[in-house]
Each structure stands twice: as C-alpha cells, then as structure tokens.
Design a protein around this nucleic acid. Sequence first.
DNA 1: CTAATAGTGTCTCTGAGACACTATTTG
DNA 2: CAAATAGTGTCTCAGAGACACTATTAG
Lengths: 221, 221
Amino acid sequence: MTAGESSLTDYPRPSVAVDVAVLTVRRDALCVVVVPSPRGRALPGAFLHPGERLADAAHRALTTKAGITELEFHQIGMFDDPNRDERGWVLSMAHSSVVPLTRLGAAVDLVELNGTATTEPLAFDHEAMVTSAVEDVRQRYGRAVDPSLLLGPTFTLLELRRLYEVLYDKPFPKDTFRRHVADAVVGTGATSTTGGGRPAELYRRQSGAVLPEAASAFFRS
Amino acid sequence: MTAGESSLTDYPRPSVAVDVAVLTVRRDALCVVVVPSPRGRALPGAFLHPGERLADAAHRALTTKAGITELEFHQIGMFDDPNRDERGWVLSMAHSSVVPLTRLGAAVDLVELNGTATTEPLAFDHEAMVTSAVEDVRQRYGRAVDPSLLLGPTFTLLELRRLYEVLYDKPFPKDTFRRHVADAVVGTGATSTTGGGRPAELYRRQSGAVLPEAASAFFRS
DNA sequence: CTAATAGTGTCTCTGAGACACTATTTG
DNA sequence: CAAATAGTGTCTCAGAGACACTATTAG
C-alpha cells in the first residue's frame, strides 16, 4: 500500500488492540465472558505486541485474562472511533468465539444476552462488539452443524435443536428442524438415556458437511 | 479493552494502513483499479493519520491516488502478517468498493479479473484482498439489486442480467433471473431503444427492496 | 413477411412445513 | 396399561427452473 507516501515514521501510530467476545450457553441462555476493568465490565482484550498477529494477541488475551486456551475466533471488524478509548488513540479488532461452558473456569464472569444485546452495559464500545459477534456466530451456525462444538462429539437432535433455539432466540418445529440438519449429521448406533420416553439416538457431525442454503434461511425464518 | 495492562506507551506501535480494491466493469469484464508502486502494481492505499477513521483514510487514498471521490466501501478484513511489508510493521485494513467505469478518470489503470483472481500479480498481499473483495461484492449484490449503482438509475433487465453474469462469472437463464429480481425492481413506463427487436422496458431499483434468500442461492447456483 | 429481442403463461418437480401417526422407553 | 419423548410417512402448497408461446419492434 501507500507506495510513494511518506515514510513509516512520519506520523504518530495508533495503539492496536484486540477484544474477544467469547460466547457460551449457560442454562439455555446465551452469555458472553466479561472481565473487570476500570470502566466497568469489559470483554477480554490485549494490546498487539510487536511482530505479533492479531489472532495471537487474541489468544494471549484469553489466556491471561480469562484462563481460556485453545479456542478459535474470527475477526468481526475494526472499531476505529478515535475517541473510543479515553486513554488515547486505540484501534481494536473485535473477535468472536464460541466455547462450551465446561471449557471455562468456574471463576469466569458471564453476562447474559437477550437476543443480540447484553442485559447490562459493557465498557467502551464492547456492547456493539457483542452484537456483531452474535450475528457472526449465527452465520457460522447456519453453514454447519455446531461448528464450534458447543455440544460434545455426539448429541441428540433435541439437544441440537435447543442449542439453535438459544442462538437464534426463537423456537423451531422438531420435524422441520430435523430434516434441515439431517444430511449434515450421521447417527451413531448409540442412544441417549434421557429418563422419560423413548431414548434419542446420538448423532455426530458429518465431517465436512455444509448445511444447505435453505437451512440458514430457515433458522432466520 | 486491556484493562490493567501496561500503559499505552510501553510497546512499539504498528503503522496502520488502508487499501481499497475498487472494482468496476469494463467491456463485460470485472476489473480492479491499480496504481503504480515500487513493488509493482498495487491497490490504492494510505497510512492512517492521527485521529482519522479508517473510512476517512480509505477515502483519502482514493482521492489522492486515483482521483476517485464520493464512493462507498466496506471493510473486508485486517491483513496482519508482520512481514507483509518489507518496510516495516504495517497492518492494513482491506476495503472493497464498486464504482461504474464512467466515474473513473480515463487515466486510471485497471487489471482484469478472472473469476475472483487477478490476471496478473499485484504487490504485497493485494491479490488476496481482491479475492476477498469480489466475495464481498457478490454477497452484497445477492442481497439487493445493484446496490453500488454500477448501472444508472434505470436499466433493462438484460443489462442487469449481463452485469450479474460478469460479477458471478456464470450465465443465468433470462426467465428465472427475471423472476428472482422482479419484486426488487419497478418498471418505469419508458423503454430502451436497443436497435434490434422489441424495446426493453427500463426499470429502477425499488427503494429498500431486499432480494429473497433464494436469489442469493440462485446467483451462486 | 422475417429476424430479433422482450416478456409471460404454464408445466413439472422438488422440497419446506405441518399434521398425525408409529416406535420405544419408564413407571 | 398410560405417559413421555423420538422419529417418520405423507399431504399440501409454494416456488424454482424450463419450455414454449405471445408481444413488439426494425427492415
């Protein structure tokens, strides 16, 4: 870029940070991980270190701030309002991540969501980041069956449907839901013992399976 | 973010740049605007100035490098390989934009695309940016009828279909195409004089119209 | 008239969505 | 047995896609 422009040292440079909206499901409610900050609860974040990639900084933020390791995230967008941080000029790349509750330490603090919004204010522009993160997760879950492994390696279709109902904040009829995801999962012979009623078969994700376009439209109805 | 971490001045900061893939259509071929650079042809770009927003820097890059004004762009993603620019540590936010050929000065240099790839190499990681830009444009054109106004305020359905065939790099049957976009355009009474055959009616975009999910799937077939 | 292009009636087939039925467990 | 949940046969209706027909111009 910028061929022939001023050299790299001519201008003050911004600090570049990463923030990660880690989403999870607790008691049938979508939640986001928050950490304490001087300005109130905030998403875990970190400044980009020299030579570091954004993904590595995001990883570092999660490890040091929330004790979360080995998880995937996606770029949501750069938040670049020059006044978004009173401490100075700080750009922040927002990331989204999804992780099962069991992978989070018991000490992690969660804020519940209502649809795509948080139920309480967050610091900086982090509420907007969370909203974008939920949209991103919905898109990803519309293309594949639970790609972030919120459920374990195997699951019943009821568990899968309940998960999608939480993520999309709306109910789905069981038979239509089943037929939309049927080609992207494969039944193990095993069954789940739920207690009441006929045991449900356990399914696993079909590797490489992509949900049809219609499934994504169905989830959004 | 980053509450309680080191202060803002502890670390060296990266330079932050913007690059813009300006797409247009010339003689039924999708093209991207390039400018000369020491490393070969590159996308127009600029370094982010203090207090500036990324969108403003992108705007400035287009004005000063390519003489293009008043156009919209979208964030594609941050390219953050520490070694992507030999001059130093430079992050770049890639943007996509679409503009009719008539809005570009005659002096602007274009490189044709073949599908989502350039037909010749570009500097830095700009080829990847172009590919992402085309994907982004396809998504946006799948949600609305020519939202970037590549065609004028009115157009025939043949012109519209030809445009979509260029963008998606595939032919569309005329009747099915028509029915997919029919609810998102509205006929003016006027007709276009093409020369041969029955004159085609001129349509305009229906304000606020959104293409159905099925249309997007159809374009991708 | 023919040639050329625009636009549409209509058929078929797929598949989404809904209803209700069957299947398999516990108590 | 009844109750509860899992899974499916099947009907209906909407609509995508294709074919062919009609419509409107030029020459």
